[in-house]
Amino acid sequence: MAGATQRSEAATGLALVAPPLVYAVALLAVPMAVIVLFSFWTQDYLDLDTTLTLDNYREAWTDPIYRELMARSVYISGVVTLITVVLAFPVAYYISFHVAPERKALWIFLVTIPFWTSYLVRIFLWKVILGFNGVLNTSLIGIGLIDAPLTVILYNLNAVVIALAHAFAPFAILPIFVALERIDRSLLEAARDLGETARSAFVRVTLPLAMPGVVAASLIVFIPTIGDYITPRLVGGPGGLMIANMIQTQFLRLNNAPMGATLAVLAMLIVSGIALLFVLANRRFLKRRG
């Protein structure tokens, strides 16, 4: 009797998770498996050679172009992550510690306003701001700070960093805000009571307790930015291209899906590796707490 009930409960459970499971397998696992499979095949002009081989990986690893794009992607993502998290922290801190409790929701809502516009539109706005005759240059010339328009701010790596850091700011602010909200304020009073100044209490208590949020923010920014291709494509110029642009080129222009798949798999592995190292480096902050 009990066994029958259990079985039927298990069956109900399975029935309930089945649709999302099918969805996840169809849209995530299958494409991923196909990409991995493709990466072991090769393209022979118009034909697909389905012999399993590591040739693509060998080429991807030795060709300086791929290497440079990959290194540049990691570098850009790293810089974007650093800038975003460093700038997001004070915003999250301000909302958590200095905004009246009843207005916090409003502030968080305001933080998400950039999402109301399409990302493409926002990128084009950056072009308007950073361009040769853009808002920034004309303003700076107008107030006499520079004589000629700056060219280092558009169609290069810097422009990509600026646009991405702006786009991902809300993603970084939210987890840090949540971590800060979870800090029992009496801990800060206890630190003051035990002789710490406001600043040293921040370093000894607030910062370590906010680290889970900082780690989450870093991963949330780092992982998607490495694969971004719209931003480098539109504001990066030739010097700001990233690995995703090459993947797109392999798939769509060079008709070399296997090579594109190989680069995609490698990018994924590198991101996973770096993310894992990052989490391990911060594991003492991520321990479960009572």
Partner: peptide
């Protein structure tokens, strides 16, 4: 507060969750 000759036991105890017992006591 940090320069007063007083110390406090908080209602929630305010034990630092990221530190060991000895680190808490020696804070």
């Amino acid at each position: 507060a940090n320069r007063r000759p007083t110390n406090m036991v908080f209602q929630s105890y305010a034990i630092f969750p990221h530190l060991s017992v000895a680190e808490n006591v020696g804070f």
